[in-house]
């Protein structure tokens, strides 16, 4: 195929996106992404010299409002959505792996 991306690059992109791709899936994803990036390559045929980039099509410039908070008191409801909590906090595994400390 087009060879726009190889297995190592797919593995690298997956790690940037916090995804794990195992060996069995690596060929499958590499092949599909390679084809799609080959499609992306077709844009190189378009002359875009001096053409500005468009990142949004909204007609709104800025929206201002009074700096007043209006959504207090939702702590309990928010915590109910968290996978694991303790007291009034969201609980997560240790950030620093203590087994490496000694």
């Amino acid at each position: 195929m087009a060879n726009q991306i190889d297995r190592d690059q797919v593995q690298h992109v997956a790690s940037l996106a916090k995804l794990e791709v195992n060996d069995a899936q690596l060929d499958y994803f590499t092949d599909q992404l390679d084809q799609t990036i080959g499609l992306f390559e077709t844009l190189s045929a378009v002359d875009t010299t001096n053409v500005p980039a468009t990142s949004s099509v909204t007609d709104q410039l800025n929206t201002m409002r009074e700096d007043v908070a209006d959504n207090w008191g939702e702590q309990a409801a928010l915590l109910k959505n968290a996978p694991e909590t303790q007291d009034d906090y969201i609980k997560v595994p240790a950030i620093i792996d203590e087994s490496e400390a000694n």
Partner: peptide, 11 residues
């Protein structure tokens, strides 16, 4: 890729 696509969007 991204910038090129955003320019094609303008066209």
């Amino acid at each position: 890729y991204f910038k090129k696509a955003a320019q094609v969007r303008t066209l």
